[in-house]
């Protein structure tokens, strides 16, 4: 709970502005304007401090909880690249995905944790805190690459996620076959994130809180961009494979099998 302690330190710091600084605001008023064309109102200090602000909703929490295993699976998929792909672009792509998804997992965990929310949506009504996730992690570790997926496996599949069979299938491929399957799956995976965003913003009261809104907007921009990039890469690789192999199992447009 290191983060919580830091939070307290920061609050203490914020209460102590340097004595020689500060504007003279003794005469200043606080105004809340009205709708366009209408008069506003003056706020007392008490009123200004008590203004309502959007709280996060269950849908916000579910979005964050669902996106963690979703991102987690992208990490697992990227971890498959080494040893299976010889394509430098795929390697770079995997690195970039891994870094951004790790950053975002940390951010989502912090968001949930600071609000006292469990990190994962409880499947059968029992909350899954970090401790629970640590326990029972070892009894599933037959495949190093799949260790992280343990968590994802506990979670109801989020849109675009690969089934265990699909993950196995991906892990069984190599070379251009792997590259193309990786891209197709990752595109689907990312498109799933966009569906989750649609669901979020279609939920009453969701996406209102400032920090969550910023995060959701970033995920939207990043995943959309990566989808475009991967689609382009898939076309290039599929075209190359078509030249090398008369029957690569995929159309040159990269259409999924």
């Amino acid at each position: 709970m290191t983060l919580g302690v830091l939070g307290v330190l920061v609050v203490l710091g914020a209460c102590a502005p340097a004595g020689d600084s500060g504007a003279d605001d003794s005469e200043a008023r606080t105004i809340q304007p009205g709708p366009p064309g209408e008069a506003g109102r003056e706020l007392t200090a008490e009123e200004a401090a008590a203004l309502p602000r959007p709280e996060y909703t269950d849908a916000d929490v579910r979005f964050m909880q669902g996106m963690i295993p979703h991102h987690q699976q992208a990490l697992e998929m990227s971890a498959l690249i080494e040893g299976r792909s010889q394509n430098r672009m795929i390697g770079l792509l995997g690195q970039r995905i891994a870094i951004s998804q790790r950053d975002e997992i940390a951010l989502m965990s912090r968001w949930l944790e600071r609000r006292g929310e469990p990190l994962y949506e409880a499947p059968e009504g029992h909350e899954m805190h970090a401790e629970h996730m640590t326990e029972g992690h070892t009894d599933h570790g037959e495949d190093d690459h799949m260790a992280d997926g343990h968590m994802a496996a506990h979670h109801p599949a989020m849109p675009g996620m690969l089934s265990p069979e699909e993950m196995e299938q991906l892990a069984s491929l190599s070379g251009a076959e792997f590259d193309m399957a990786f891209l197709r799956y990752m595109i689907r995976h990312h498109e799933g994130a966009l569906i989750m965003l649609d669901t979020l913003f279609a939920s009453p009261g969701a996406g209102q809180e400032t920090e969550l809104f910023r995060f959701a907007s970033d995920v939207d921009a990043d995943q959309s961009m990566e989808i475009d990039r991967m689609a382009l890469l898939l076309r290039e690789i599929a075209a190359g494979a078509a030249r090398d192999d008369p029957d690569p199992g995929a159309g040159p447009d990269g259409a999924p099998r």
Binding site: T2, L3, I68, Q72, L75, S78, A79, L92, G94, Q95, R96, A98, I99, R102, D103, I105, A106, L107, S109, R110, E113, L119, A130, M133, T134, H137, G141, D144, H145, A147, D148, M151
Partner: peptide
């Protein structure tokens, strides 16, 4: 990040730690 991931028992797993990708 590591701290938060540790809470998740993500990076806490040895397997995951070994898979940490090199920097971009």
């Amino acid at each position: 990040l590591a701290a938060a991931a540790g809470l998740l028992a993500v990076a806490a797993s040895d397997a995951a730690a070994q898979q940490r990708p090199p920097p971009v």
